[in-house]
């Protein structure tokens, strides 16, 4: 049984972190070019209280990530990171791009809280969607996106920050791990998706 030796060997590369002492966890690896995320049948509710599934975004390039509304540091940085990626995109592509942010914390992040958050960040309403779902689906999506998270006793959520690019079919096409990281690769891949 050598699995645990492998485990120890693999620990180092998994340690990628966000800045600012925010509770963070390393992300895990995710293969690109695999299956579509749209095979997942989890039920979500958007910031307007409308029921949706992820497959709704089929046909468009998507940046998807996870956050929670009461998050003090990393999550606002996540929004600014997405805006930074957007700002470097070809305008025609940007018009198509969908941003999907799913909360870790469906208990506190009601549709109303999500709607307020969207207003707070002054984002384009037809392209930015804030979603909540049940705790089991949160775990499932986090596992698919290689995002690790845990609730801490003080009510915060330690989590890895990962922005994942989905192609028009919903397959993972690229990722940015950590906050304020270079996004050249994902910008290049996005621009290449221009029709």
């Amino acid at each position: 049984m050598r699995s645990w030796l492998l485990a120890i060997a693999l620990l180092a590369p998994t340690a990628a972190f966000a800045a600012d002492g925010h509770p963070t966890l390393p992300a895990s690896k995710v293969e690109t070019g695999g299956d579509s995320l749209y095979v997942l049948d989890g039920k979500y509710t958007d910031q307007d209280g409308k029921a949706v599934t992820l497959a709704k975004f089929r046909g468009k390039p998507v940046l998807i990530s996870m956050f929670y509304a009461t998050c003090p540091h990393a999550c606002p940085m996540l929004v600014s990171d997405v805006k930074r990626i957007e700002s470097e995109l070809d305008p025609a592509l940007r018009k198509e791009l969908q941003i999907v942010l799913v909360t870790f914390d469906p208990d506190r992040d009601t549709p109303d809280a999500l709607s307020k958050l969207r207003d707070l960040h002054k984002v384009e309403k037809d392209r930015w969607t804030f979603l909540r779902t049940d705790p089991g689906t949160v775990r499932e999506l986090a596992a698919v996106l290689g995002i690790r998270y845990r609730f801490t006793p003080d009510g915060a959520i330690g989590h890895s920050s990962v922005i994942t690019l989905l192609d028009r079919d919903g397959a993972v096409a690229g990722r940015v791990e950590g906050v304020r990281q270079p996004a050249d690769d994902i910008v290049r891949k996005l621009n290449a998706m221009k029709k």
């Binding site: 972190f17 600012d20 002492g21 966890l25 998270y149 845990r150 801490t152 330690g158």
Partner: peptide, 24 residues
């Protein structure tokens, strides 16, 4: 259920160095 999520200290008061892996 939560494999891999508890390995790392997530206490933000630990001087902001999240590189402190919990078991090492």
């Amino acid at each position: 259920l939560d494999f891999g999520s508890t390995m790392v200290s997530s206490d933000s008061r630990e001087d902001g160095d999240p590189d402190k892996m919990r078991f090492c």
